[in-house]
Simulated assay, not measured.
Amino acid sequence: MRKSNGGFSLNAPRMLTFAASLALVLAAGLSLRYHLPVGQGFVAAHRFWLAVGGYALLALGVVLPFL
Results as ranks from 00 to 15, higher is better:
Leu60His: 05
Tyr55Glu: 06
Ala19Cys: 11
Ala23Glu: 07
Ala12Tyr: 13
Ala23Cys: 09
Val62Pro: 03
Ser9Phe: 09
Tyr55Pro: 01
Met15Ile: 07
Ala59Thr: 14
Arg47Cys: 00
Leu50Val: 10
His46Phe: 15
His46Ser: 08
Leu10Ala: 06
Gly7Lys: 15
Gly41Leu: 09
Gly54Pro: 10
Leu36Met: 06
Val43Ile: 15
Ser31Gln: 02
Pro65Glu: 12
His35Trp: 01
Gly54Thr: 10
Arg2Glu: 14
Asn5Pro: 02
Arg33Leu: 01
Leu58Gly: 05
Leu67Met: 15
Arg14Met: 02
Thr17Ala: 03
Ala45Met: 03
Leu57Pro: 13
Val52Met: 11
Ala44Met: 06
His35Arg: 05
Ser9Glu: 14
Ala20His: 03
Met1Arg: 08
Ser31Ile: 13
Val38His: 02
Leu10Asp: 00
Phe42Val: 07
Ala59Leu: 14
Gly53Glu: 09
Ala27Met: 14
Tyr34Asp: 00
Phe66Glu: 08
Arg14His: 12
Tyr34Thr: 09
Val62Trp: 03
Ala28Leu: 11
Gly6Phe: 08
Pro13Arg: 04
Trp49Leu: 07
Pro37Asn: 06
Arg2Phe: 12
Ala59His: 07
Gln40Glu: 13
Phe8Glu: 11
Val43Lys: 01
Arg14Glu: 05
Gly41His: 02
Pro13Asp: 08
Ala45Glu: 03
Gly61Ala: 04
Leu67Asn: 04
Phe66Val: 15
Leu22Asn: 11
Ala23Ile: 14
Gln40Cys: 07
Leu64Trp: 12
Val43Gly: 01
Met1Trp: 02
Ala45Leu: 06
Ala56Gln: 08
Leu16Ile: 15
Pro65Trp: 07
Val43Asp: 03
Leu60Asp: 05
Pro13Thr: 12
Phe8Cys: 12
Pro37Thr: 09
Phe42Met: 14
Asn11Thr: 15
Val62Arg: 02
Leu30Pro: 08
Leu36Glu: 00
Gly7Pro: 01
Val43Trp: 01
Met15Glu: 09
Leu64Gln: 11
Met1Val: 13
Ser31Phe: 00
Ala12Pro: 04
Arg47Gly: 00
Leu36Thr: 00
Leu22Gln: 12
